[in-house]
Amino acid sequence: MPVTADQTLDCSGLSCPMPIIKTRKALDTLSVGQVLKMIATDPGSQSDMDAFVKKTGHQLLAAEQEAGTFVFFIKKTR
């Protein structure tokens, strides 16, 4: 079943640490249970988003990759 997002954040072209910072800011505007779709082109964001959810406790519902673009679906848990 495809994941649907409540908000989309485009971090294309940004490098560390901006995707993490912008993801955090976007999650702050969501309610618990809502899903953020984050798009990045920084290959480091794969590892960083894993680490981000591990540390913050939010949930990475899905991560996809296509032609140098990474798409993450993060559910706000608290």
């Binding site: 794969q46 894993d50 591990k54 406790g57 990475l60 899905a62 991560a63 996809e64 990759q65």
Partner: peptide
């Protein structure tokens, strides 16, 4: 689209000591 990660069913444990 290639899936990098499947949905994670297990809850992330936050009870271990962390800085």
């Amino acid at each position: 689209m290639t899936a990098l990660t499947e949905a994670q069913p297990e809850a992330v444990t936050l009870d271990e000591p962390r800085a």
